[in-house]
Design a protein around this nucleic acid. Structure first.
Lengths: 186, 186
DNA sequence: CGAATCGTTGAAAGCAGTCAACTAGGGTGG
DNA sequence: CCACCCTAGTTGACTGCTTTCAACGATTCG
């Protein structure tokens, strides 16, 4: 879709589908900084470059805004700028929460927290459910949580053995949501 | 200074000194999400609560703005709002960089990256120097890098044994900045 | 049906964490 | 002025969680 070095000439509004947002180290290590869902804005950078790369997981529909005219459009509408600002603040808050997860949580806590967080995000789109679809790969989840693919897999299996979740093709079913929350430890 | 739950009734501009910005898990684990230096803004949340706690490292001088009047003041000044927005975007970018560090870097890379980053931030305030003052404690550094105090200490001594840095009281001297950069691996 | 990709599982290694002892300053009170 | 204490930092020994390496299983697609 676009990568970190690209000059931002456009914003995007994700209308449908899922995207991964990530950064790469020179040696190829990847950290996924977030997943984008329907309704999310990408590339709010008014000027300059993107600070992350993004690509689609499956098929996506995006609405592209050329930056320049959008900038002019926004000029006379401070409430809109304010809205954008609040969006940035919210993302910043999420980013900080994720820092706590990456720096201070165990593998099991990471996975449990991820499942709950992902489910929560889907609530507003598809309604609440104990069935949590996971369109992204294990590698994506690992790179999001700062783990390896094997640890993610093992943790899922452990949670399943403990009767907390059930591994479904394409997702996870929360058999005991309360216990998942307990494992997430806030 | 203020904590995560506080309703934000004020912004702050840090005029002098250093502050740590952090989040706590219920069990007391701490993740420092950033350090604030002279000139930095705190609590850009237009409305709602702070999403992190903050307190001073040593003595600080801050300029406090009441939120409400400041909000009115900003009303007719879209360029200022825009400025605030760019600040938020920059912080977001830094937050994402730090995610990469927390999720994908080794202890040595973390420490080296931290030293370089901290030095870089001090450049604009005190000018460039190979002597990097560290006003924060080892515990603060550990909580910033997602490590333990012991690992931070051991990593410093390893770097010193390797002749890359020298541990000074109250800071670190970069004996071989190029090698530190190599260890930071980007 | 075979190839390729993704995910799971096992065994072993290693990096960072834990526990604990020790050292070095810095401040305080006798 | 010195003895004491208290905190911050260092170091060592050991543990253990996560990674690494490797093989295996499952699903998809040509």
């Amino acid at each position: 879709m676009f990568s970190e070095e690209d000059i931002t000439t456009s914003f995007y509004n994700l209308l449908e589908g899922v995207m991964r947002l990530y950064k790469l180290l020179p040696d190829g290590r990847r950290q996924i900084v977030g997943f984008a869902l329907s309704g999310d804005f990408l590339g709010m950078n008014i000027s300059g470059r993107h600070n992350f790369s993004a690509d689609a997981i499956g098929t996506v529909t995006v609405c592209q805004f050329a930056k320049a005219p959008f900038g002019r459009f926004i000029e006379g509408r401070p409430h809109l700028l304010r809205r954008i600002n609040e969006l940035a603040i919210r993302e910043l808050s999420q980013a900080r929460d994720h820092m706590v997860l990456l720096g201070r949580r165990s593998a099991e806590e990471k996975v449990a927290t991820f499942l709950l967080g992902w489910r929560e995000r889907l609530v507003s789109l598809k309604g609440s459910s104990d069935m949590v679809p996971l369109p992204m790969s294990r590698q994506d989840i690992a790179d999001y949580l700062g783990l390896t693919i094997e640890t993610v897999s093992r943790t899922f299996t452990k949670l399943e053995r403990d009767g907390v979740i059930e591994i479904i093709h394409g997702g996870i079913s929360l058999l005991d949501p309360a216990r998942v929350e307990a494992l997430a430890a806030a």
